[in-house]
């Protein structure tokens, strides 16, 4: 690991000011950054820890909205009764990350800011229509999660901008996340699919589908969602939604599997994820 200067600011303003400098990097739980520094893919000259800034951790409710601080540990997201009940797909995604030892360190802010297309909390946040609150020395702003990512490892975050929390306004009556992987634990997603539905008297009033690792950024499958809304969740309809989701994907071939396989699996997994979300609704 290259040497670096280490800072532990106690206010967001100070952290933002330090982070706006050149060659500065933020430290949340460190599970992506420390690996990167060991591999020399990250060679910051200064590392700014967010761990001493009060107010960035914890899960609170505000009416229907559930707010998750950016520095909340993945393990806490996974075990939160509120998240499990109202955003099951997010709790399931969190529980799929690495090992318990990793989830005790890793934060939800780091999982999202790192912007890996395969991040396991991203599909759950997409179907929760999460707002991402961002602070900098200049002030605050909020962006919808589906507008945060611009490419693999790339976000709209400007130098000095820090994610402070995620606001999840709309509870789903049923949601589910499937991580397509080979190993039971400690594997990265080939594909991640989340679905959230609201049902009223057997009719789907709202449906949201989030896809990870099948395009340069995580995406919503809007056409598939539109097919579902206003209709009963028949097997044929879920089948059609799967096909529409697969059409929305633009997967790549890599060492782990081919683009064709990924597209085929988006179809199958979207259908299965929807079935489970509907069953829970």
């Amino acid at each position: 690991m290259k040497s670096f200067a280490f800072f532990e600011p106690t206010t967001l303003a100070e952290a933002s000011r330090l982070f706006a400098e050149e060659h500065a990097q933020l430290l949340a739980g460190g599970t992506d950054l420390v690996i990167g520094m060991k591999a020399y893919t990250e060679t910051p000259e200064s590392v700014i820890s967010l761990q001493k800034i009060p107010g960035l951790t914890g899960i609170t409710t505000d009416g229907n909205s559930i707010n998750i601080g950016a520095m909340t540990k993945i393990r806490e997201v996974e075990r939160s009764a509120d998240v499990q009940q109202h955003h099951t797909a997010l709790a399931e995604g969190a529980s799929e990350i690495g090992s318990i030892q990793i989830r005790n360190l890793a934060t939800i802010g780091g999982n999202i800011a790192h912007a890996s297309p395969a991040a396991d909390t991203v599909a759950g946040l997409l179907v929760a229509d999460a707002h991402v609150d961002i602070a900098s020395a200049e002030g605050e702003r909020s962006v919808p999660i589906n507008e945060l990512f611009t490419g693999p490892g790339q976000t709209v975050l400007a130098p000095g901008e820090i994610i402070t929390r995620f606001r999840l306004p709309t509870p789903a009556s049923g949601s589910h996340y499937i991580k397509h992987k080979i190993r039971e634990v400690m594997d990265l997603a080939f594909i991640g699919v989340a679905a959230a539905v609201n049902l009223d008297n057997g009719t789907i009033t709202d449906a949201r589908i989030g896809l990870a690792a099948v395009a340069p950024t995580p995406i919503r499958a809007r056409e598939a969602e539109d097919l579902l809304k206003g209709n009963a969740p028949t097997p044929e309809l879920l089948e059609q939604a799967g096909e529409a989701a697969a059409a929305a994907a633009s997967p790549i071939s890599d060492l782990r599997c081919s683009a064709e396989h990924r597209r085929e699996m988006v179809d199958v997994l979207t259908k299965r994820t929807l079935q489970e979300a509907v069953a829970r609704a």
């Binding site: 280490f6 532990e8 430290l27 460190g30 599970t31 420390v34 690996i35 590392v47 820890s49 761990q51 393990r75 090992s99 318990i100 030892q101 990793i102 005790n104 360190l105």
Partner: peptide, 13 residues
């Protein structure tokens, strides 16, 4: 109280 992988933690933290 939490199990963590100490190779991922900076000692200063």
């Amino acid at each position: 109280g939490k199990a963590v992988t100490s190779c991922m933690v900076l000692g200063v933290t």
